[in-house]
Design a protein around this nucleic acid. Structure first.
Lengths: 207, 207, 207, 207
DNA sequence: CGGTAAGCGAGACGGTACGTCATGTCTTAAC
DNA sequence: GTTAAGACATGACGTACCGTCTCGCTTACCG
């Protein structure tokens, strides 16, 4: 086994790490992910290339850490990690989906998030990281709220919260990723309505 | 304005075009999109680089044409361009979604389709092409079937077929793109059930 | 056998070749061989690095060709390829050795010649090229003149012209390479005297 | 003026110094001077890089000290620091030149000596050190013996011992450095003969 | 005899150059 | 006039060393 010897992370330069995050996010925002190069990040951060290669295996990995850092910084400021439970599931979901729509429309998030999503589509390794560190924690909030809703009878007894959540989030992601149609609050509301009450007429018998 | 002189497409070599498609699909399948290069495609196709640059603006554009060609070949063989209408919407949708699941799980389609999707996420220009030439024709089949269903009362009167379709297709795409969970027939069925009959208990009053 | 495919030299850019020679000689003269880099030569010549790597295996090989070109240009202008034969061997040799001293003291020749000599000392492959293409042709002039001298009785019958030539050229090279003492016309003269008439007193019996 | 503070050599680690010498000589012998790096020497010696940079200004300086140490060790064992004076100059010189030939053909000396010579050709600073510490002491032995020879009439009265010595040593160095022809005992003998008795026929009048 | 300051092994750092690869443009010869 | 072939300028890749620096640690000297 010829593992490359792991660097000693206790000696790691915090200043360089932060400069690299800032440079990566700035460049992806300004010139796009494809035109962002590791050399460019290093130059912008005032850092040697090797300092990047020492700590990250790829451009995508740098950006993932940078983006996670950005998200955590924002989360620390906002500090509201759960979906509210007012008892009115429909209202609670609309609130959250509207917030998600706003976030996806925010240019500061859009560029790096798209880049990471695109890389994940094509790179299963990165996808696993992306999902487990960024996406899944968010989805678990839905799981929690929907499980609570099931217990109080707000949603049908047999429903799998995982599938329920995807019914809400999947269409949103679809529009965002492929830009088929604009992402609006109205769309978020319509999605919640359809998902909760179904496409079939209320009176229709269950098949 | 110095427009590059448009090549004379009547003199274009059909053999080269087909060889390029085959080479592009083969290389993307074998080594992945990122490692596939225009030089590599040219070499594999036994073609000069310029022949590619003359007719396509980018690697992604080559692959898009190649993939469309592949899809059309397959469609010509199968020749079943519409979603069936047996009167039983639930059954019809499950049939189609199961078929879609099978297609997405087919390695011959997976690699190029992923690559095109990923590029589209990040390149709005390509996305427009990808959507209009590949995705939208497929989605229109749903629009048609759902519109018919609305007219016969199989789905609620006010429903927007576009949103209805995304409720079905969005979650599928989500799982496929980010590989969060496996894509199975059961999942397709569950999606149709949830979408048609809603998450909320049948007895619940419409909000 | 995995030979790297040989490039097609009929398509080679003459302009690039000349620019590379000029850049290489200029940089070696200005900053020294050690600080001269292939990137630097390429940049100065307005040429891609690959154009250098395509045609030469190393920095030293570039410089050798550049220097040979320089020497040939100069030789074309001077066009006096042989050691004169006035019948007076001593005078002829002093003339040539003084000219060699002047050449070695000329800064335009000194820098690249030193660099090539130094590399040759350490790289046997290069040394073979250096010797056969640059040094040996010059030494053959001595061989010719000394052989003629032997036939006319100007030097002893049994003498090996090769050794005779090294007796003259070796000490010159020694002073030049290691800069032990200055290289002057007087030194050249003294060398010829010693070599021709020997260190031992004229009257001394041959051992 | 910001002189770098001189390190306290009384605290210097003798073990490290010796390990560095051994590593330097070993690496130059095994992989050649060009591929020998300071990092490599440090790693092989089990020493921090700074320990090398603290005490030596360059790779060449390390190797010079290492080689001098090697030569001194050998000299301490052999302990015969002068050219013999049996009264027969020719025999004495042949003895010494043959010994020099053997030394230059010894692989243990060849690699580092070549490297130092090559660096000296190109780096005047190092050359001065190389000459004064290694070469000159050896040449002075010739000066001494040749001066004695002049006093006893074994060589011509007006002869400069410096030039005489170079007549012997220069050609040897020439063959060794550029590997033009093999270095043999016969060659050493021929050199002494030519240098002592001259190229011109014995009967020829002095010019 | 305990404090402190040096040398030390280790290795992260900002850099520079390496030699390779692919880009997109250009030129040439063959058809 | 398109084609296969491939040289060209450009520029990023990922690696290797450079020489400097900062960490703890040992180790001697000195107050």
């Amino acid at each position: 086994m010829t593992h490359r010897k792991a660097p000693d992370s206790s000696r790691r330069s915090e200043a360089s790490r932060r400069a690299i995050y800032a440079a990566a996010l700035a460049l992806v925002g300004e010139t796009g992910y494809a035109k962002t190069t590791i050399e460019g990040i290093a130059a912008r951060a005032g850092v040697g290339k090797q300092t990047i290669y020492r700590w990250w295996p790829s451009k995508a990995a740098v950006l993932l850490d940078a983006f996670l850092d950005l998200v955590e910084q924002a989360a620390d400021r906002a500090a509201e990690p759960a979906i509210p439970d007012t008892g009115d599931l429909e209202a609670d979901l609309k609130l959250v989906l509207r917030a998600t729509v706003d976030e996806l429309n925010d240019p500061a998030y859009d560029a790096p998030a798209r880049a990471l999503a695109a890389e994940s589509v094509v790179d299963a390794r990165l996808a696993a990281e992306f999902v487990s560190r960024l996406l899944e924690p968010q989805l678990q909030l839905y799981v929690k709220r929907l499980t609570a809703a099931r217990e109080t009878g707000q949603i049908r007894a047999g429903t799998d919260p995982r599938i329920a959540l995807e019914l809400l989030v999947g269409p949103l992601a679809h529009r965002w990723l492929l830009r088929t149609l604009p992402l609006t609050h109205d769309y978020a509301d319509a999605l919640v309505d359809c998902a909760l009450y179904g496409l079939a007429p209320r009176g229709a018998p269950r098949a």
